[in-house]
């Protein structure tokens, strides 16, 4: 079957804004992504290396703030929904497939996967330093005109433009 076309980006933007507004109106918070990864990571460390979690200030504080159940968190539930929602969208649009998109000059999947891991690692560190990722800081922060959100957005997109030239062979 033929794949359905993507939604008009302007309509998608308006709908996304409405979802964000609904989240702010009902829960008093914006959408996010990296915070959920952080909660899952803390949960994993607590289960795999409990002595390390007990002796490290960051984990102690995080667990204390989350009543010792880091997975019972707004963002964890939201991201679980994101995965299911994206799956439903892919299913209804006939886009469900296991694939690895890469530039035409990238011959092996290894380079693409290595790039994704290194890039993901750097973005993970950066999102913690910037106190939010593209969703939490840039999208949600910008929508409520948060100074931190605006600065983070410029840093993310400005950084990407600054470095895109050096990694052009991966995509062009």
């Amino acid at each position: 079957m033929e794949q359905n076309k993507y939604l008009n980006p302007y309509i998608a933007g308006v709908l996304l804004g409405l979802v964000l507004l609904l989240a702010i109106f009902v829960s008093g918070r914006g959408l996010g992504a990296s915070g959920a990864i952080k909660s899952v990571t803390v949960y994993g460390v607590e289960k795999i290396a409990p002595s390390h979690a007990e002796n490290t200030k960051f984990y102690q504080k995080y667990l204390e703030e989350h009543n010792n159940s880091p997975l019972k968190n707004w963002l964890v539930f939201e991201v679980a929904g994101v995965i299911i929602g994206a799956f439903i969208s892919g299913l209804t649009a006939n886009r469900l497939a296991l694939k690895l998109e890469k530039g035409p000059n990238v011959k092996t999947n290894g380079i693409r996967i290595l790039g994704a891991i290194v890039g993901g690692f750097l973005f993970g560190v950066g999102s913690q330093l910037g106190r939010g990722c593209t969703s939490g800081a840039a999208l949600s922060g910008l929508a409520v005109l948060s100074t931190g959100g605006i600065l983070t957005m410029f840093a993310i997109f400005g950084g990407a433009y600054a470095f895109a030239y050096f990694f052009r062979k991966l995509w062009l």
Binding site: A12, S27, A80, I84, G85, S89, G90
Partner: peptide, 19 residues
């Protein structure tokens, strides 16, 4: 609120994939 977060996530993921 957590259940609400889950449903908000479904809409968020759906719209992002559609876009």
């Amino acid at each position: 609120d957590l259940i609400f977060a889950f449903f908000i996530g479904i809409f968020f993921g759906y719209i992002l994939e559609q876009a």
